[in-house]
Design a protein around this nucleic acid. Structure first.
Lengths: 149, 149
DNA sequence: CGACATAGTTAGCTATGCTAAGTAAATCCG
DNA sequence: CGGATTTACTTAGCATAGCTAACTATGTCG
């Protein structure tokens, strides 16, 4: 009988996890000031670097923003030579967007800063606690991937 | 073998947790469209409701933004009658900021939407997984509170 | 009293989100 | 074939939210 009715309050847990996520990102975001680009550009660049070239529409969907917003984010990335528009030979309406080598480099540096910062905060945790965090991250990923509406 | 036996790679874990936090907040943020106010106003209101009245400077510090930014966030909250400025009798330079009843109501509704959404995504998890998430949230809170620079 | 310190505001810039409307290309269909 | 529709992106215009620099008002201290 799986936690019916008297479950260890799911909403309470969701609340605490929600709060933890907010605080975590609030902290790491401070490390981004050194990257020279804003959070939306950084995040879009990340999708491009790890996901490979894609159309503007796909990138907008991946970032959960509307196409006009992605047009502008891309304009910013191009101005900084971090990404580029490429003609799509199959459909001239579409644009392929690709990270440049400079973009990939900047992304990896920024990511390293964020991760180092977090890892430093985790330095006092035991191996057991670290393993628990790792598992929690995977559970969250899985839970959010399912039930995707 | 990314882990040389002993310590599970702290940076790998930080990376996955970072990514999980991003995805989690990206999902819940979509629920906020119904609240009618932006994320910064929502977050500041949350601090006011749970932390009680405080000065503009304290509120800015809590939200990790600069005073001019908080001035504008507060202007937006006041326009919507969600918070109000109060004279500080002890020091006329200072402002006390307080959430209104309407503000508290709106906050609780928005929070409920976010939490319900998350809790729904967690509905397929076992009690054990839920307990793990809960513990992870507490570990993250603790890790970020310490080593605060 | 005058100099300095502190708290907020104003002004002006950038980035990021939106909707509505425009342009260009592909596709549908009579 | 060719006009109507759909699709992909851009442009225009608006709002929020971040910053620094400079200003105002108030408090504190020598």
């Amino acid at each position: 009988m799986m936690s019916r009715g008297k479950s260890p309050d799911r909403r309470e847990i969701a609340d605490r996890l929600h709060s933890a996520a907010i605080h975590l990102l609030r902290h790491v975001r401070r490390q981004d000031a050194h990257s020279g680009i804003g959070p939306a550009q950084f995040s879009a660049l990340s999708v491009l670097v790890f996901g490979g070239p894609m159309t503007l529409g796909q990138l907008a969907a991946a970032e959960q923003v509307k196409p006009p917003t992605m047009t502008r984010i891309l304009t910013g990335l191009e101005r900084n030579r971090l990404a580029e528009r490429i003609r799509d030979p199959e459909d001239a309406r579409r644009l392929q967007v690709r990270a440049t080598a400079k973009g990939a480099r900047l992304l990896h540096e920024g990511r390293r800063r964020r991760i180092n910062y977090l890892a430093e905060h985790f330095s006092e945790l035991s191996s057991k606690e670290l393993a628990l965090l790792h598992e929690a991250a995977e559970i969250v990923h899985r839970a959010l991937r399912s039930t995707r509406h």
